[in-house]
C-alpha cells in the first residue's frame, strides 16, 4: 500500500530532475535529486524500500533521457550497500553519515555511469570529468541533502508515532 505513495513520488522527482534540474546549475553542474532522495531514504528508512524504488526510478529516468535503459538503475545500485553504514551508527547524528554517503554515492554513480556510457561508445572525457563534473556534483549533491533528508526524516518520525498509537487503540 505504501508503494502507491512512494512510487509516484520518486517518479515525480525523476521527472523534475530531467525537466528542471539543468536550469539550476552550481559549480558548473546540476544536482541529482533522485540519487539524493534515494540515499536519504535508504539511510532513514532502511534499504528495503529503495530496493524496489531504484529499478523503477532508474528505468523511468532512462526512458525520458538519452541514456540507454538500465544505466541509471545500474549507477544507483551502490546506494543499497552504502546504506549498511546505517547499522553501524558511526556517530550519534544520523545526518552526518547521510551527508557522507550521499557524496560517496554520487562518486560511485558517476563512475558506473561513465563506465556504462563508455561501454556503449558514448563515453565522456575521463581525464576532464573528475575535476569538472564528478567532484563538483558530489559536493552539490551533499549541499542539497538537507532538502531531501529533513522531509524523509519528518515523514518517517510521523509515521512511527502514528503506528504505535494505532496498534494500541486497535
Amino acid at each position: 500500500m505504501r508503494y502507491l505513495l512512494f512510487v509516484p513520488l520518486v517518479l515525480f522527482v525523476a521527472l523534475a530532475q530531467v525537466a528542471a534540474a539543468p536550469y539550476f546549475p552550481l559549480l558548473g553542474v546540476t544536482a541529482n535529486p533522485l540519487l539524493v532522495l534515494l540515499m536519504c531514504w535508504a539511510m532513514v528508512r532502511g534499504p528495503r524500500e529503495t530496493m524496489v524504488l531504484i529499478p523503477l526510478a532508474g528505468t523511468f529516468k532512462d526512458l525520458i533521457t538519452t541514456d540507454p535503459v538500465g544505466v541509471s538503475a545500474l549507477a544507483l545500485l551502490p546506494i543499497v550497500p552504502l546504506a549498511a553504514i546505517r547499522e553501524r551508527r558511526p556517530t550519534e547524528s544520523e545526518f552526518l553519515p547521510t551527508l557522507a554517503v550521499v557524496a560517496v554515492a554520487s562518486l560511485s554513480y558517476h563512475l558506473l555511469y561513465m563506465m556504462a556510457l563508455t561501454a556503449v561508445g558514448d563515453g565522456p572525457p575521463w581525464l576532464q570529468s573528475p575535476m569538472r563534473v564528478v567532484l563538483p556534483a558530489a559536493l552539490f549533491n551533499a549541499l542539497v541533502t538537507p532538502v531531501f533528508y529533513l522531509p524523509v526524516r519528518w515523514a518517517t518520525t510521523l509515521s512511527e508515532m502514528v503506528r504505535p498509537s494505532m496498534s494500541v487503540s486497535g
Binding site: M51, T59, D62, P68, G70, A73, L74, L77, V120
Partner: peptide, 21 residues
Amino acid sequence: RTLVWLLVVGLLALLGIALSQ
C-alpha cells in the same frame, strides 16, 4: 538477499542497456 538483489538488478540493467543499443 542484498547480494542476490544486486546481481538480479545489475543483470537486468545490462540486458536493458543491450536492448537499448
